[in-house]
Design a protein around this nucleic acid. Structure first.
Lengths: 106, 106
DNA sequence: GATTTGGGAAACCAGTCGGTTGTATTATAT
DNA sequence: ATATAATACAACCGACTGGTTTCCCAAATC
């Protein structure tokens, strides 16, 4: 299944998970305590975050600490920068954007 | 229905729409030409974008030009800044720990 | 006034999502 | 060796998503 970071951060629970593990790596149980859902639901969210490489599991005994892959957050930044670049030069070169978009779709 | 900007930009077609109208306001028909879907599908995407105030319709005769509400994009930036603040303060805490350890060695 | 054109709204469909419950697996503790 | 704890995995469910098709409305054109 195709996962991308924008889909990953679309869910508010996942955004909260990201902020939590930004402070320190955490286990599913520890994370679940901060939410009003089951541990299994959190596990599913973590699975999504792993699939788009935002998060990395680190086994430690029978516990699994999930830690953030910070660099991945830059992909959001990248899109924002692309957007701002377009916005700032919005009166020039619509054609350039169109060819860029076409390439990205391929 | 509760809409938020993160859900809005989760869809790749909507992200492309945002980039397109960042250059200039466009009508649904004009937008649809750039995608492999029907005008109605694009209209639905625009509806989502309107609901979370990323886009504003502007009637002009029987055509409706959709234009971007740029400031709204800042909400993404805001979350990123919040995230980075947390991430950086994590290292500050590490620094504190390290200086504490250093003091203890002296 | 009839026709065409730009666009919205509704009904429908298959696929996905976020959640639950239940079961399986593995590491620690007794 | 057995019990317990931490977690994954699978099946299921209702809600939502992105898409299509069909229909309707209003503005422009003839």
């Amino acid at each position: 299944m195709r996962r991308d970071i924008f889909q990953a951060i679309a869910d508010p629970t996942r955004r909260a998970i990201i902020l939590l593990i930004a402070v320190q790596a955490m286990t599913p149980n520890a994370l679940a305590e901060h939410f009003d859902t089951t541990r299994q639901a959190i596990s599913k969210h973590l699975k999504v975050l792993i699939q788009c490489e935002l998060v990395k599991p680190q086994q430690q005994g029978r516990q699994i600490y999930y830690q953030l892959e910070v660099e991945k957050i830059d992909e959001i930044d990248h899109w924002l920068r692309q957007f701002r670049k377009i916005w700032e030069s919005r009166f020039e070169r619509l054609d350039d954007l169109l060819t860029t978009l076409k390439k990205q779709q391929q």
